[in-house]
């Protein structure tokens, strides 16, 4: 038994959960979705164990390279989904979110991702690593849920307009409000973790709270997109399609901040 075994078990459990969700999607049997949720919850606990294991084994926070941070992002995504599902009953989002989570897990386990628990370079040896990365990724996980519900909104909305919405299907209006709630949770978390904690740590480690480093700039861009979402919605009363599109763009910007900047643009944030 070691961390990678636990990781594989988690991966398998998420697969089983996705399977149940897809059974639910095609058979419309509520019981399948319920089983799916319990399986995800089990997977989440195994995943938590895997992360704790990794932390003890390496002696540092479980997100210092791409493998670790992807695994942590999948964990945050599962957590965000479990919270939202228990609170708002959005089972229909389950299959799609499980696909995203499995995709992230697959990416994490791909041989391209450096996964050896290397000792930490000096700049990363700080408790700000915990605060900055975990809160940011948690915020992004909620953006991911908003992304999925926004896409579902677009589908549900066009079906309702065409009059081909299925009986008992989750309404577009509800999806719209769930997206908003996810952004309302994700935005403060992202602001705190990504921008505020990021600035504090940058000041402590590099001596400058803001350097227009590409990763900093892209998290500001992500923040601006969601600020736009909130202003158009709250002040100008935008809802539905346009809001959904902004939320989708916002999550894509967050993804670019996370991956694109590392692989396409060089900067201070060269570790992960």
């Amino acid at each position: 038994m070691n961390e990678s075994t636990l990781f594989l078990i988690t991966f398998a459990v998420y697969f089983i959960a996705a399977f149940f969700y897809f059974v639910f999607l095609f058979s419309k049997k509520e019981s399948a979705a319920k089983t799916g949720l319990s399986v995800v919850t089990v997977g989440f606990f195994v995943h938590t164990l895997a992360l704790i294991w990794r932390t003890i084994e390496s002696g540092h926070a479980p997100f210092t390279n791409m493998y670790e941070s992807l695994s942590f992002l999948a964990w945050s995504g599962a957590l965000a989904y479990i919270i939202i599902e228990y609170k708002y009953n959005i089972r229909k989002a389950g299959p799609y979110l499980m696909l995203i989570i499995i995709g992230i897990m697959a990416l994490a386990s791909s041989p391209l991702m450096p996964d050896e628990a290397a000792p930490l370079m000096p700049a990363l040896q700080s408790y700000w690593l915990w605060l900055h990365v975990s809160v940011t990724l948690l915020g992004e996980a909620f953006f991911a849920v908003a992304f999925v519900t926004s896409i579902m909104y677009l589908v549900a909305d066009s079906r309702e307009k065409k009059g081909v919405a299925k009986e008992g299907a989750i309404t577009a209006e509800k999806l719209d409000s769930i997206s908003y709630r996810c952004v309302a949770v994700g935005f403060p978390l992202f602001t705190l973790g990504g921008l505020v904690f990021g600035m504090v740590w940058a000041y402590k480690a590099w001596g400058s709270y803001w350097s227009w480093d590409p990763k900093e700039t892209w998290s500001l861009i992500t923040w601006f997109v969601f600020a736009l979402y909130l202003h158009t919605r709250i002040v100008m009363g935008w809802k539905g399609r346009r809001s959904a599109l902004i939320a989708i763009i916002g999550f894509l910007a967050a993804l670019f901040t996370y991956f694109g900047v590392n692989y396409l643009l060089a900067g201070l944030h060269s570790y992960a």
Partner: peptide, 18 residues
């Protein structure tokens, strides 16, 4: 105006990273 400025500043910031 706020929305216009947010969009412009965002676009400019993007250019600066590329």
């Amino acid at each position: 105006l706020a929305i216009f400025l947010i969009i412009i500043i965002t676009a400019a910031s993007m250019i600066g990273t590329f």
